[in-house]
């Protein structure tokens, strides 16, 4: 994350414009392969873990990370929200944030 704390909220549908930027992503872990996990966030996103971030299948994580050229995300930080929570609402929220980008972000 930058010192100003700006990391736009995205899901799989909005990754492309943020290549090389730091974003905030909420998704449910569908698969764990070593230090890489696949998250469902309105589509699949491959997330490369940090050392102290342990992914568990079925749990929802909020990732702050950098978007790679292949649209995978290198996690810098992650918060485990547990398995409860409505991902449909999260994706609706991301859509609204993206539609009102100027309200949320100075970018």
């Amino acid at each position: 994350m930058n010192a100003d704390g700006i990391c736009p909220r995205v899901n799989a549908q909005y990754l492309k414009p943020y290549t090389e930027s730091v974003v905030r992503l909420i998704g449910r872990v569908t698969q764990v392969n070593g230090d890489t996990a696949i998250l469902d966030a309105a589509g699949s996103v491959t997330v490369h873990s940090t050392r102290d971030l342990v992914f568990t299948e079925g749990q929802i994580f909020e990732i702050t990370g950098r978007v790679n050229a292949d649209l995978s995300v290198k996690a810098l930080d992650g918060i485990n929200h547990g398995s409860d929570g409505n991902m449909d609402n999260v994706n609706k929220m991301v859509e609204l944030v993206q539609r009102h980008k100027a309200f949320y972000y100075n970018i």
């Binding site: 909220r9 909420i26 929802i60 909020e62 929200h81 547990g82 409860d84 929570g85 409505n86 609402n89 999260v90 929220m93 609204l96 944030v97 009102h100 309200f103 949320y104």
Partner: peptide, 17 residues
């Protein structure tokens, strides 16, 4: 506590705005 409050808290300022 809980994801749903996170979701809500992101949208609440937008609604009031």
């Amino acid at each position: 506590t809980g994801l749903d409050e996170v979701t809500f808290s992101v949208l609440e300022p937008l609604l009031v705005h």
